[in-house]
């Protein structure tokens, strides 16, 4: 960026300005409005005639009191647990799916399409589908020979949500990893084979390191998605069930009960939480994630 003619950077700024304006409108404004809202309270008092007193009142940090409350912490714990478990399982399954999808064999196209179908199903629809599977006299209990109430509040509900989420998003990880696999040149494998590397060694020494950038992008996406999960627990188990209430679910519940102050406060807290996770992730593993960018920047410096 340094050492370029001035005119060019002005041109670049002008070309980017529409993007920045759109970003300011759809990202920064709601963000700032929500943060402002989190310091205000409204509609919580009645006057003598029984009418709600209109207008907003500055509440300071009162709305943030709930962040230390039992319900918020429970939701934060659920969200974190859900994220760790689902993303972990999805990475393993996704890599396996990608390896299978990459193989050249008859019917590969059908298999690929088949694996991707769950990803194409809208989450709410898959939630309804799994609800049907997990209901008291549903398929899951019939197959397992159990009488578990999967959709009632309790530990089984957690498992039901994890299963449904893994089913739906493992293919997404698989797809991104597949894209990473396909750019690994086959010569590398051939050379390794000639040198006598076993299949396991080829996977550990070639496939994994070379597919790592794509895998990290997939994990980052999934992390951010899983941390704000809402629709699946909502549809599958229902709102306000402690065992599966996520932070987004809690925010939704507060907002529908017209508690915009606490909802915004929790939203801000969730935002900070996701930002920290993403920051740490990029910091720790960013070398590979942004290696391409860095290489290009170095190139530019060398030329300049």
């Amino acid at each position: 960026m340094t050492g370029r003619p001035r005119g060019q950077s002005w041109l670049a700024a002008a070309m980017l300005s529409p993007t920045m304006i759109v970003l300011a409108l759809v990202v920064f404004y709601p963000l700032v409005a929500a943060m402002r809202e989190s310091f205000y309270t409204s509609g919580q008092t009645l006057d003598a005639d029984g009418f709600v007193v209109e207008g907003e009142r500055f509440a300071g940090l009162a709305n943030y009191a709930g962040v230390a409350g039992e319900r918020f912490l429970n939701a934060a714990l659920n969200t974190t647990l859900f994220t760790v478990v689902t993303v972990g399982v999805e990475v393993v399954l996704g890599v396996a799916m990608a390896l299978v999808m990459q193989r050249a064999f008859r019917g590969r196209a059908i298999l690929r399409a088949g694996i991707l179908i769950p990803w194409a199903v809208p989450t709410a629809v898959s939630g309804l589908m799994w609800k049907w599977i997990f209901q008291a006299d549903g398929v899951a209990n019939a197959l397992l020979g159990t009488e578990i109430l999967w959709t009632a509040d309790g530990p089984w509900a957690k498992l039901a949500v994890v299963v449904a989420d893994v089913w739906k998003t493992a293919p997404f990880v698989g797809l991104l990893v597949l894209a990473g696999l396909q750019i690994i040149p086959s010569e590398v494998y051939e050379a390794a084979k000639v040198d006598g590397a076993s299949a396991r060694q080829r996977f550990r020494r070639i496939t994994l390191p070379l597919v790592k950038p794509a895998l990290l992008v997939a994990v980052l996406f999934r992390l951010m998605d899983a941390l704000r999960v809402f629709d699946l627990p909502y549809v599958l188990v229902g709102p306000r069930k402690h065992s599966v209430e996520t932070l987004s679910g809690l925010i939704w519940d507060e907002a529908t009960r017209v508690h915009y102050g606490p909802a915004s406060a929790y939203g801000t807290a969730l935002f900070a939480y996701i930002a920290v996770i993403a920051f740490v992730f990029v910091k720790l593993l960013g070398a590979d994630l942004l290696s391409d960018v860095r290489a290009r920047r170095k190139e530019a410096r060398d030329v300049g």
């Binding site: 963000l31 409005a33 925010i251 969730l270």
Partner: peptide, 20 residues
């Protein structure tokens, strides 16, 4: 680069922003 990462996250808050 950090700002871009933050921007992508902004969407999580959009849902609960309520304006006057």
């Amino acid at each position: 680069r950090q700002i871009t990462a933050l921007l992508a996250l902004g969407a999580s808050l959009v849902a609960c922003g309520s304006s006057d």
